[in-house]
């Protein structure tokens, strides 16, 4: 099942299928490791609900929901690892 990273619940994980968004933002996402095939897990939300913190390629990344909405992820089903 596919789901946007912005719609993830805490603890959900999956494999990135597609990254959309305009040029600059997309480039930035690629450069920091948000590319197709990467495994991503939602770690937590900020106290005010946004931005979110994800684990990706072995490190912690934070991004806003609007930016996470550019990332299409295939859900793993269960909790990561």
């Amino acid at each position: 099942m596919n789901k946007l990273l912005s719609d993830f619940a805490v603890g959900e994980s999956g494999r990135i299928v597609r990254v959309t968004g305009e040029g600059r933002l997309r480039r930035r996402l690629f450069d920091i490791g948000v590319t197709p095939d990467a495994e991503v897990t939602l770690r937590k939300r900020a106290p005010l609900g946004d931005p979110i913190e994800v684990t990706l390629r072995g490190y912690e990344l934070t991004l806003r929901k609007t930016e996470a909405a550019c990332v299409d992820v295939e859900l793993n089903g269960g909790k990561a690892e």
């Binding site: 933002l25 913190e53 490190y59 912690e60 990344l61 934070t62 991004l63 806003r64 930016e67």
Partner: peptide, 9 residues
């Protein structure tokens, strides 16, 4: 500006 940032250990 976008907020895409590493959270360092």
């Amino acid at each position: 500006p976008p907020f895409i940032m590493e959270l360092p250990t």
